[in-house]
Each structure stands twice: as structure tokens, then as C-alpha cells.
Design a protein around this nucleic acid. Structure first.
Lengths: 253, 253
DNA sequence: AATTTAGTTGAACGTTCGTTGAAATTCAAC
DNA sequence: GTTGAATTTCAACGAACGTTCAACTAAATT
């Protein structure tokens, strides 16, 4: 019923994929890889994985179509390579900032929620608004993938959950009385608010009659942090677990 | 460079589309339409607009492939028909609930933010968890579309912005000192948190080690309302606009 | 200089894509 | 029961899809 030919089912990637670290250090191969990755990043972000063909990508990169398979095995491998390319740099800074926030509050008192959230979101919003244009595409792609039933639970987890766990652990220290499930759902809401921002669909521009601009990520950031910090506090305040029970019973009625 | 053959460029829909209200009232045609819409809703939700072919849909609906073009013009028309089918019922109840909340507080005092948010979100989460299974697919599709640069700003606006404007107006009454842009961005965050919930990607299940389940929308709802209410209040509190200026200057530094 | 290897090229594979035309069937009105 | 329109069927169109093959060039190794 559904199609089956997209992801490599037969010898996916063959066996002549260039070895990751050893080969390809020469200028020729590496430049080709990056051209393909740049084009894939931009086009996947615009129309999603299935809305863009391998030929669209290699055409935009001005390289032969066979080079996509040669360098990345198949289309899905290309998507994952796009994901991976910027993930390491991103996660490195996020963890460094988280560690700095925790170190600054070491021993003395719990860290401030706003600082933890900022450590988590600032590296993203800063790169999207002030980094090279590829970053904007990268985050728009993440927005789509995060909300995709097919890829969301797999790709996002694989590349970002380690740093998310560190983030949640920092929040746990900031709100030591918080119940576990409240913590995770509060993160979930933050994740949704953040990724919709990255999508930059232009909807808020229209809705607000031009008062808000999707692309003005600085405006978003200065509001996202207090918004989510207040949400975390509201969900995770002490004794909140007790009052929850009443609410649950009423809702189930 | 990019493909162009997907949306109807040549006589899109031809000129033998059955007239909307008059024909098709007979059982045969209407049943076919609904079978196609049901299948399209489910499959589009799973893999997105481009990830599903018209033949996937008509195959699942067990009808001839030509009937999709006959009833809906082309593939994009089918997507819009899926969107439209449930939008009216949804928006009707949301507006009725909003009006009820506003009427209950009429004249006396501003409505409670929690009540306004609940009027906006309850019809959605209730149908997704307790309605017919098609509703769950419908909202998962909305989650994908809302985060799509291609469709998000167009389809979401067309079908839902009228009721969103009523919602924002109710919040405006609940928080009369709020600055306009804060209001819209706060709605934006709510929209992102809500739609990521609908995607049900399973990521939170994995992340929380099974403590949270994506499908447990009642748990989500009882947390989403206080989370976002606190966020709205934090952004829209009186005199917040003044203190914002300082933050902006620091962030731009 | 000869040989191996990595990278690139152009063409082609079989399949699936969205859409359409014309014939066949079913239904409603008379 | 005949007529005319609405709906369904079957087959096909050309284009685009992801992937692969063998030939070829450029670089590295001997």
C-alpha cells in the first residue's frame, strides 16, 4: 500500500562509501560533500525530506547526482549527515554553558531557572539569527523533524537527548521539589515553543498584523525565557503534586 | 531545479468537480469522498504531504485512483479538504466555549486566563483522546503543517486564525495591561507547545524512561493550561514593557 | 614511470509519480 | 422504460523518482 522504494532496501549505500575520517581530507572530496550538505540542508528545510528529490539537491549543489549516493549511501544517510554536521558544535556549547551556570552556583544555592533555560536556548537562537545562513535552514529542518511522527522520536532523540538530559538535570536542581513527570512535560512544552519559533512560517506576522516578525529571534528569545521559566515554576512548585490529584479526578469525569 | 509537477498547474481540478452542496448527497458519492478523506488524513499525518502518494491513499481507501482527482481536483485540493472537514466543528465549539467564559465574567471582572486557555485547547485535546480515531490523525497532521515553512503560514492561517483572533482578544481582556507583541508571542509559544503534543512522536516517552506517555493527553492538558497561563502572566504583567527595554539592550550587546 | 586508489561522470535501470481520457455503470427525473 | 447527468472503472500518458553501473580523471603510492 505504502511505497517502499525510498530508503535503501538493497545494499543501502553499497560498500564503497568513503571511510569517514581517513579519506576525503583532500580538498576535492570534502568540498563536494559540503556543497551537497549545504543544498540538502536548505531544501529539506523548505519542503521536508519527501518534498525534495536527490536531483533537486545535487542540481542546486551543481554536482553529479551520483555523488550523493557515493558520499552518503542513500537519501536517508544524507539527511542524517545534515543533522549530524552541526549537532556536535551545538551540543558542545550548550553543555559548556550549562556547566558554567551550574559552576557559578556551585554549593551555594540552586541555579536560577532562567539561566538554565538560557544556556539551553541561547546557542540555538544566536546561531539562527547571527550565524551563517545555513544555521537558519538547519533549525527550520529541526522544527519539521521534531514534529514528525516518523522522524521526531528517532532523529531528535539520537542527536539531542544526551544534552537534553543534562538540561533536565540542571532544572531538577533548580526546582528540587519538582515531580519527575512535571519536569519532562514542562521540557516538552519548551521544546514545542522553541521549535515552532525556528520554523519561521510567517503565521505570527500575519496574525499580529505585522507587529511581530517571525525572523526577529531576539524578540522571541527575550520572551521565551521568562515565559518558560514561569511555566516551569507553575508546574513544579512545592506541593503541586497534591493539588494535581484533584484536577486529575475532575478532568477524567 | 525543484520539481514542479505536484500541484495542479494545468487545468487543476478540471471542470468536472462535483458541485459542493448539490450533488454528492446520494450515498454513493458521499461515502467515497469520506473513505478517501479518512485514508488521506491518516496517511498524510504519518508521512506528510509529499511522503504519501495519491495511490497510497486510494489504495488504502479501496477506491479507484482516478476518484481522488474527480472528487478533489488534485492532491493539494485533497489536503485542503482534509483540513476543512473537521475545522468547522472544531472552531464552532471553541468559539462557543470562549463566549461562555466571557459571558460568565461579563461586566464583573476580567475572565480568568486558565479558563480562556481551556476553552481554546479543551475541544482539541478532548477530541484527540476521546473522539473517533480520525481526530488523532487530524491533529497530528496539524502539528506537521503548523511547523512547515511551506504550508504553516498559509493553511493554518486560513482555517484557524479567525478563532485565534477571538482567543487573543479574550486574553487581552484577561490581561488588560499587556503589550500587544507580548500577547502574540505568548500565543505563539502556546501554539508550539500544543502542536508538538499532537505530533505524539514518542520522544518524551523515551526521554523520561517511560514516566510520560505521548498518548496520555489528559496528563498533558492538566499541565499545559497552568504552564501557559503562568507564561502569559509572566510576559504580560503590568510594567513589564518598561523592564523589557533594559533586557533588550543587554541582549543586543 | 607504473600501479593503485579515491573521486567523478554520464547514462541508464526499473519503478512510481500525479493526472487524464474515454468507456462503462449507476442513479434520479420524467 | 427512456433519457441525461453523476459517478466509477480501466488503461495509459509523460515526467520524475532513488539508485546503480561501467568508464573515466586525478591524486597518492610504489
Amino acid at each position: 500500500m505504502q511505497k517502499k522504494g525510498t530508503t535503501g532496501r538493497k545494499g543501502a549505500g553499497r560498500d564503497r562509501l568513503p571511510r569517514a575520517g581517513t579519506a576525503g581530507t583532500g580538498s576535492r572530496s570534502q568540498a563536494t560533500r559540503e556543497r551537497i550538505l549545504d543544498a540538502a540542508e536548505r531544501l529539506f528545510a523548505q519542503r521536508g525530506f519527501y518534498g525534495i528529490s536527490v536531483r533537486d539537491i545535487t542540481g542546486a549543489a551543481e554536482v553529479d547526482v551520483a555523488l550523493a549516493s557515493y558520499h552518503f549511501g542513500n537519501k536517508q544517510g544524507l539527511l542524517e549527515a545534515v543533522f549530524m554536521r552541526r549537532a556536535e558544535d551545538l551540543n558542545t556549547e550548550r553543555i559548556a554553558r550549562l556547566d558554567a551556570v551550574l559552576a557559578a552556583a556551585r554549593g551555594r544555592r540552586p541555579p536560577k531557572i532562567e539561566d538554565v533555560i538560557d544556556a539551553f536556548t541561547h546557542p540555538l537562537l544566536d546561531r539562527s539569527s547571527r550565524g551563517s545562513p545555513g544555521w537558519k535552514s538547519y533549525f527550520a529542518l529541526i522544527a519539521e523533524v521534531n514534529n514528525s511522527p516518523e522522524f521526531g522520536g528517532v532523529l531528535m532523540s539520537r542527536f539531542f537527548d544526551p544534552v537534553v538530559e543534562k538540561f533536565i538535570d540542571a532544572i531538577r536542581r533548580a526546582l528540587p521539589d519538582c515531580e519527575e513527570r512535571d519536569l519532562y512535560w514542562a521540557y516538552h512544552f519548551l521544546s514545542g515553543a522553541l521549535t515552532l519559533t525556528f520554523a519561521e512560517t510567517g503565521r505570527i506576522d500575519k496574525l499580529s498584523g505585522g507587529a511581530c516578525r517571525s525572523s526577529d529571534l531576539d524578540s522571541v528569545h527575550e520572551r521565551l525565557v521568562p515565559y518558560c521559566a514561569a511555566g516551569f515554576r507553575a508546574l513544579c512548585a512545592t506541593k503541586r503534586a497534591a493539588s494535581r490529584q484533584a484536577g486529575t479526578r475532575k478532568a477524567r469525569k
